[in-house]
Amino acid sequence: MKIDLKGKTALVTGSTAGIGHAIAKGLAAAGAEVTVNGRTREKVEAAVAAITKTVPGARVHGVAASVSTVEGCNTLVTALPEVDILINNAGIFEPKDFFETPDEDWSRFFEVNVMSGVRLSRAYMQGMLKRNWGRIVFISSESALNIPTEMIHYGMTKTAQLSISRGLAELTRGTAVTVNSVLPGPTMSEGVETFVKALAKQNGQSVEEAAALFVKQHRPTSLLQRFASVEEVANMVVYVASKEASATNGAALRVEGGIIQTIA
């Protein structure tokens, strides 16, 4: 199977680093015209340059805007009125004791992780339906099903994404538009690597030892027994965004290494 996205436009939020950057690079490699998004112009320009260097002939643009706010989403939509593929990837996480997590943190996580996808889907999905082709993908997490006790506020937002994704999929009935979620497990993105390095320093371990111990202690049911790479997650997303994935709709697709011990 050869995935060919020539002639399609794609927007990947939060794509200056980590999983989002890998997704943007993967979509560009498949031929899509990709818009990279991040909060600062410097990071966006660096990400565009990195993809252009890595993917010969890539058509990549950048828009600096914080999708955690109404104003930021409006800025993005004004700069890019229509897209064929929307990847709602922007998100934040932070381990924090439930009893020490104030209302402000719950609201902030909801705005960034949930409302960014709501606003952008609202802006772009009607155009997809009119053109009778489109792909919306929410980057959720296995934490949507296995709520982490150290990040309950984060898990809540990831579960919310599954509900929104499935609900939007119901609106596509009989069309060539699909809406799906992808659920990564522990993934060695830049943010997670920083977190693991801090753990390693705190416990007097190597980064490799800290990463392996984290999986064993916090995700003991993992069949992969390691962190996934950002490319492994991006591969699933590129497929779901493709024309070849036309019969996959309303699904929660796992790239979590077998952590979730269910068959459905």
Rank of each mutant, 00 (worst) to 15 (best):
M1A: 13
G7D: 07
T9Q: 12
A10D: 07
A10K: 01
A10E: 04
L11C: 09
V12Y: 01
T13I: 13
G14C: 11
S15A: 09
A17L: 10
G20P: 05
H21G: 01
A22M: 04
A22T: 08
G26K: 03
A29D: 05
A30F: 08
E33G: 13
N37A: 02
T40L: 02
K43G: 11
E45H: 02
E45K: 02
A46F: 02
I51L: 05
T52E: 11
K53T: 13
V55M: 04
G57V: 11
G62L: 01
G62H: 02
V63L: 07
A64H: 01
A65H: 06
A65N: 09
S66D: 14
S66T: 13
T69S: 10
E71L: 10
E71T: 15
A79P: 10
A79G: 11
L80W: 03
P81R: 07
P81Q: 09
V83G: 00
D84R: 00
L86Q: 00
A90D: 00
G91M: 02
G91D: 03
P95K: 07
K96Q: 14
K96M: 14
F99N: 09
T101P: 11
S107K: 13
E111D: 15
V112T: 13
V114M: 02
M115A: 11
M115I: 14
M115G: 10
L120D: 06
Q126E: 11
G127K: 03
G127I: 04
K130Q: 15
W133T: 05
R135Q: 08
V137C: 03
V137A: 04
V137E: 01
A144S: 15
A144G: 08
L145Q: 11
T149E: 10
E150W: 11
I152D: 08
M156T: 15
T157S: 03
T157L: 01
K158I: 01
T159N: 12
A160Y: 00
Q161E: 12
L162H: 04
R166H: 09
G167N: 13
L168Y: 04
A169L: 05
L171I: 12
G174W: 00
T175F: 04
V179E: 00
N180W: 00
N180Y: 04
S181T: 00
V182C: 00
G185L: 02
G185Q: 02
E193M: 15
E193W: 06
A200M: 03
Q202M: 13
V207R: 12
A210T: 01
A211C: 14
A212C: 07
L213P: 01
L213W: 09
L213E: 13
V215I: 10
K216G: 12
H218D: 12
R219M: 13
P220T: 09
T221V: 10
L223G: 15
L224M: 08
E231A: 07
E231V: 05
E232Q: 15
E232A: 08
V237R: 00
Y239H: 02
N249C: 15
E256D: 15
I260V: 14
Q261P: 15
